[in-house]
């Protein structure tokens, strides 16, 4: 089969994608920052929005680490109302499905946010970012506990008919328990991993580098962690998994798909190369042609069958 005729289409619940490469939340702004590159993505997951505007954390917010990027942005965003009013109209015009990412302080806020973005025109799906502190529970992350994660997703589920993607944090003991809980609460898919908790210290100045002290690590440094968690979660739930964490090129993306991901997210790599996602799409297609596959579906989770293959 010719490369051109080979379909990379994939369905994440009711969300239909022309290719399986998403822009990870927080790495493509609200889409227009990378306007020229946006149509090349399967979908753009916008930066997480909260109910009110947030100024974000004090600088420094970034530090480069070995093969990675440590960030402490602090959910800087204009708030859901300004997002719907000022950002969505431009995002809708980009010619790519927009997945609105929401982040709440309480389960009730997730419901309000889901309702607000569902009412707006041009949102194809909602990402529920549960890597946020639950203010009422002493700041414990929603995503760190299956019960709290389910409460956030359940509140969003009750407020919208749009496809819901729960974005999971890797900073947990049992990611599968959280994945099962959010699926039971109504998530149509899960995306993982969010950034890995970390920090950096300035030895000369004898203080933490980041203004927020702790940050989230992204980039190629976290890929093995992400790959393992995608592998585990793909077995634990019967919903599509969107795999991400350090994907820089098509080979990285294919590894996630072989581990069980139906789609992948490209994040930090976009900062390094705005055209990275387009190259990932082309490279996945080339891999499928090389492998003699008829569609993406042929290779989703294929590495999970290695024992069978070894026996045959």
């Amino acid at each position: 089969m010719s490369a051109a005729g080979l379909s990379l289409e994939v369905d994440i619940g009711a969300l239909h994608l022309k290719n399986p490469v998403l822009a990870a939340s927080g790495t493509a702004g609200f889409g227009r920052e990378y306007a020229h590159f946006a149509p090349l993505f399967g979908a753009i997951v916008t930066k997480s929005v909260t109910l009110g505007p947030r100024a974000g954390n004090p600088p420094p917010r970034l530090v480069e680490t070995s093969c990675g990027l440590l960030n402490s942005i602090g959910l800087e965003n204009p708030g859901v109302e300004a997002f719907v009013r000022d950002e969505l109209p431009a995002a809708r015009g980009l010619g790519v499905p927009i997945v609105a990412s929401i982040a709440g302080d309480s389960a009730a806020e997730y419901g309000e946010l889901a309702r607000a973005v569902s009412r707006a025109d041009g949102v194809a799906a909602i990402e529920v970012n549960i890597s946020c502190p639950n203010v009422a529970r002493g700041g414990m992350l929603f995503g760190a506990d299956p019960v709290q994660a389910a409460a956030a997703v359940g509140a969003a589920r009750a407020a919208t008919r749009l496809p819901l993607i729960a974005k999971l944090t890797p900073n947990v003991t049992d990611v599968c328990a959280v994945a099962r809980a959010v699926v039971d609460a109504g998530a149509d898919a899960v995306a993982l991993i969010n950034t890995v908790a970390g920090m950096a210290i300035d030895a000369e100045r004898r203080r933490p580098v980041l203004g927020g002290v702790f940050g989230g690590l992204s980039g190629p440094a976290i890929k093995p962690i992400a790959l393992r968690m995608v592998w585990l979660v793909a077995e634990a739930i019967d919903r599509p998994v969107i795999g991400m964490g350090g994907i820089c090129d098509a080979r990285d993306a294919v590894e996630f798909i072989l581990a069980g991901a139906a789609a992948v997210g490209v994040g930090t790599a976009t900062f390094v190369d705005p055209g990275a996602a387009a190259r990932v799409v082309d490279g996945i297609r080339a891999y499928l042609v090389e492998a003699g596959a008829r569609s993406l579906r042929d290779i989703i989770g294929a590495a999970r069958r290695w024992r069978d293959a070894a026996r045959a």
Partner: peptide
């Protein structure tokens, strides 16, 4: 310090 350089990441506040 910057990551994206184009206003997307909000890192250079």
């Amino acid at each position: 310090h910057m990551a994206c350089g184009v206003g997307a990441c909000r890192g250079c506040a």
